[in-house]
Design a protein around this nucleic acid. Structure first.
Lengths: 202, 202
DNA sequence: TCAGTTCTAGAGCGATCACTTCAGAACTCG
DNA sequence: CGAGTTCTGAAGTGATCGCTCTAGAACTGA
């Protein structure tokens, strides 16, 4: 479904493509696009390189699909947060979701969209650009949500929605870097609370 | 001086070690530790691999020395900022310095201490840990400065210096990620001003 | 001048990189 | 059943990885 549409004929695939993708996601998340070798990936996925190429195309396309899984799974808190009724509620939910996702014990720490390919050599140039767009898109969705909040009177007149959105995005990314370094989630949550203490109320 | 003490005898080195290090720094900064290949590095440095190994040891030690150069050069604003007379002045100078350093047109965008090795494969594990320590140390210096400010009455009683330091560190790292994505420095400066608008004054 | 020392260009090391090939296994359909 | 299709394990592709070796160049001190 999320990968290749199955044909009715021929030898059936000997593995679950979505499950293999989830395992690849964990490898990319922890080691980054360039740091994750095909040997690492296929070993974690439990399949041969031939199966990987037949199913996913190549390493870059595997990463793109892993990023989509990241959106559907670990990053699924974002649309839920944006649906919160108030701008402050949105901000709170975004930061709490970021902290939860970047510090979970059973997952790599940090954010795939940040550490997946922040600086790369030539081989990673396109994936690097992909993640720049991914982060830009995240910012744009927050900005649009705050623009709506402003129009609805949920933010005081004169508030700059883009500036506020940039504030949240920067806090998210800063939190992701801290989380990658192993900082305690409780401390990050304390910080998130403090960072929203002077939120502009209508 | 910063590298190998010169002997009086033998064939003299045919290049300036510090200048070569500066060029290596730029490559690591842009491509990250794993993304920068020895071929990239030595080509930028203008020397052979044999000269690189004789002078700097190996790739990891080259990175460690490049990070020291980073502290002395692009990151030299930090001790100056910490020497500002007030806590608010410290915070302002740290954010302004971060923005300046991570967005200069003649340098790679972003921060070496963040994007040099945020997520790596096995080969980059030690450099990754090195940068975690580098960031931890940066945070600790800010925290200590704010503890002093609290003792001096430059921050209101009851203020948590560690929390405030974490706030600055997270803003710095978030700014670094945004800068790596090409965000306009003017917008980042606007954000920095806004983020300090509710600073706790004594 | 010449012995002693250090540096460097070029070739080359085994290992690993992303990726491909191919023979045969495992299925569906008629 | 056999024909047709698809998947997979193993072996192997050229390129590049970080790193080393060696011959000789370039210096100093005696």
């Amino acid at each position: 479904m999320t990968t290749t549409p199955r044909r009715a004929t021929g030898r059936p695939r000997g593995f679950d493509a979505d499950e293999a993708l989830d395992r690849a996601l964990l490898v990319f998340w922890e080691q980054g696009y360039e740091g994750a070798s095909l040997a690492n990936l296929t070993e974690a996925m439990g399949i041969s390189t031939a199966s990987m190429y037949a199913t996913f195309g190549n390493k870059e396309q595997l990463f793109r699909k892993a990023l989509e899984r990241y959106d559907e799974g670990p990053s699924a808190y974002v649309p839920l947060a944006l649906a919160e009724p108030t701008a402050l509620g949105v901000a709170r939910a975004l930061l709490a979701g970021t902290i939860r996702t970047t510090t979970r014990a059973d997952q790599p720490h940090g954010c795939l969209g940040v550490q997946g390919a922040l600086a790369t050599g030539d081989a990673g140039r396109e994936v690097r650009a992909l993640l720049v767009d991914w982060r830009k898109n995240g910012f744009a969705r927050i900005r649009e949500r705050f623009e709506r909040a402003l129009a609805e009177g949920d933010l005081p007149a004169g508030t700059d929605p883009a500036l506020l959105a940039r504030y949240i995005a920067i806090l998210q990314q800063g939190i992701a870097v801290e989380a990658a370094g192993g900082v305690d989630p409780a401390e990050l949550q304390e910080l998130a609370d403090a960072a929203l203490r002077n939120w502009p109320l209508p």
